[in-house]
């Protein structure tokens, strides 16, 4: 008959094998197959493309209600450390990517009203100034 320490070793080995298999399958299930799904998210966790679109919507809504404080509050909900820098970056990206011109104008208007400036905004600012003069 095997000595006691051999039998103990056998127990430990089989148990460890089970634990390792259990951990592996548990992590696979918990992280990959059925991860916790958060459905109570806020805009801070949105994918960047959605955050950019969210910013465009804020600017578009601002063109409608002209509520600068409201727009500022909405921008802050995106959880950016510097919401103004984020807005400026989205605006410049839209200009450089030659996105929809209407959207660019909304973004430029909001950025400008918040006191932000980039040379890329110039053509759109000049246009609005001209339009204003005509009106």
């Amino acid at each position: 008959m095997a000595p006691w320490w051999q039998r103990l070793l056998r127990v430990v080995l089989w148990l460890s094998l089970g634990v390792i298999l259990g951990i592996a399958s548990g992590l696979l299930l918990g992280w990959v197959v059925w991860p916790i799904e958060f459905t109570e998210a806020d805009p801070t966790v949105l994918e960047e493309s959605y955050q950019q679109d969210y910013t465009v919507m804020i600017a578009t809504a601002y063109s409608l209600d002209e509520d600068l404080n409201g727009a500022r509050q909405r921008l802050s909900k995106l959880g950016k450390q510097d919401p103004n820098a984020w807005l400026l970056s989205v605006t410049v990206n839209h200009i450089l990517n030659q996105s929809d011109e209407t959207e660019i104008r909304y973004l430029v208007q909001l950025a400008s009203d918040l006191g932000l400036y980039s040379p890329a905004m110039d053509p759109y600012l000049t246009d609005s100034a001209t339009n204003g003069a005509v009106e």
């Binding site: 089970g18 634990v19 298999l21 259990g22 951990i23 399958s25």
Partner: peptide, 9 residues
């Protein structure tokens, strides 16, 4: 072992 490991994981 499997049950213990699975629960912990």
């Amino acid at each position: 072992g499997l049950i213990l490991g699975f629960a912990a994981a």
